[in-house]
Design a protein around this nucleic acid. Sequence first.
DNA 1: CTGAAAGCGCTTACAG
DNA 2: CTGAAAGCGCTTACAG
Lengths: 354, 354
Amino acid sequence: MVRKRRKKITKISINDVAKRAGVSITTVSRVINKNPCVKDYNRDKVNSVIAELGFRPDISARHLAGGRINTIGLIIPRFEDMFHTYYVTEVVRGVCNTASESGLDVLVHLTAKDLKPRSLGTHLDNISFCSGVIFADIHGNEKLLEEVIDMGTPCIVMNHIDDKLDAGCVAIDNKRGSLNAVDYIISLGHKRIATITGDLGIQAGRDRLDGYKKSLKKHAMRVDESLIKRCDFSPQRARKAVPELLALDEYPTAIFVASDEMAAEAIKALRENKVKVPQDISIVGFDDSWFATQGPLGITTVRQPLGAMAEKSVAALRDLIHSKTKASMPRIVLPTELIVRESCVSPLKQEDFY
Amino acid sequence: MVRKRRKKITKISINDVAKRAGVSITTVSRVINKNPCVKDYNRDKVNSVIAELGFRPDISARHLAGGRINTIGLIIPRFEDMFHTYYVTEVVRGVCNTASESGLDVLVHLTAKDLKPRSLGTHLDNISFCSGVIFADIHGNEKLLEEVIDMGTPCIVMNHIDDKLDAGCVAIDNKRGSLNAVDYIISLGHKRIATITGDLGIQAGRDRLDGYKKSLKKHAMRVDESLIKRCDFSPQRARKAVPELLALDEYPTAIFVASDEMAAEAIKALRENKVKVPQDISIVGFDDSWFATQGPLGITTVRQPLGAMAEKSVAALRDLIHSKTKASMPRIVLPTELIVRESCVSPLKQEDFY
DNA sequence: CTGAAAGCGCTTACAG
DNA sequence: CTGAAAGCGCTTACAG
């Protein structure tokens, strides 16, 4: 490939276009913004000059002058966590895809784990640029969210429902998802069901634990605190929970794990302790992430519609941006689906294995 | 938590601050920009007013007026590919961490798989905002890169070395990495070594194949085309390569796979065909990603220093941005490291298993 | 349908 | 050390 000659890097502006096309900059601006009130002749002329000169409107100037910016922000918290890796992957993918279909551009913004005062400012600088913002989660970014709301920027919070929030909320029905999962485990005949929880500082973590408890109560089973291992979505913590569970006088026959990644790690840890899954202990995970199918054993899990969550979020944000009147903040909760694979069987069958 | 009263969302500007502090906007601007030529008394006064009013300079105005923007862009191509998921995760993490240490903010920009003309423009709008840009790979974004370079924006390309490029290049020594890997396989005594390649449209894919061939030649072994399965970094393609390899008159005793993700999938596919790893066939992967340790068998692999690549890229970009003179474009190649785990053994040992 | 002009909120010579 | 003023490149009433 022959190296092309460098174009001049002198910035060409709306003035250059106007001059060359023999019209005013107002007309050029109208053409750029697809304002219909321009004579065809002029529009064509301007467009051809734009193409000829390779003119590209300066987004800063446009923004400063009060023009619409077709960019939404996507704020991603605490990127370090592996838990968020799958979640974030799907959310980013979904938001970017949906946004681009609507002609929106996405500015992905990762917030550091420990947000220093200085960086809070920096974050807002860029965010102030967007016509709307989606928070991939609220945890750790409560302050940022508040500031963005105070700036008057429309916001959507994912994965967290809070009626007091002056932002739209789009989330998964985590409570019902885990309720269904544990109902399923119980329906198989399990009596001693443990749980390895996610981070209880995150709503999704709390809700998944709540659903577990609710299911037990619904079936008049006792909630045994020794069967509840409070973890944090990290595989390390999940791994540590395993020997604790095995040290109990009476083994659980099933474990509901609040994420597939933790479930996969728990299964590994169980194996290392010569406990077979599902023969000795059944496992149900959550997420339907790649971890559920990556290992040698397909993990029965709760699928969450992350793609749909992303879609709904973008749509809701667009509505907020375009509603000139003070719109009411949407609250959207998406259903989950139980995906049955091989990691959870009836305890009767388990005995067959012996 | 009690709901705080909403602040006024009326934008407060440098004028408000100046008026309140009893100085000119010039002085306020100097304070904001940490210009030392301000009397302490005034500086303190301005700073306290800024804090009191919650003033935050408008980034668009600042940009338009020619101020420095502490934001670099990170362009990520073809997000759909799973191969890129691990790669991207690490690159994003590394770039964000390093950048924030230098007081830089990162604008992560995902390019769609099929870049329509329109979105090319949109992309540039946002990118034009950054004082420098890092491309996480060049593949699929050649045009964008050229345009960004033509805009006069300093650029760094990761994972691809091209001397003709008017941008800095930071990459992994893929060729040597795979050369070492295959050398290792040969040193174990293997004679029939297959390879499952990555996407040969990507330099990393080509280089890993080249290294494989080079090693064979170095050891005076024939390069047998039937042992080369040209894939694309996707596990699906890798999976399909397995039965083809097994249909050969003579099995390979080892396979060098161009990514751990493909390696993990290949191992699964081999198992399903009752071929044991490493007893029947040895496997060496590439990346040292989580796939290498996630499965039941640790995969021997080539570790690439993605974190270091990110660091070097940010540092190089910073240099390019700050060098007022036309700097020469850096070419940085980072070494790899062979990580020996359980998936590759000597063929003599393999016979022991029979 | 069109254009002159004001203004968005900053930075930066320039003059003091 | 400080400030008045020009200017960055656009949008948007406003008047025609």
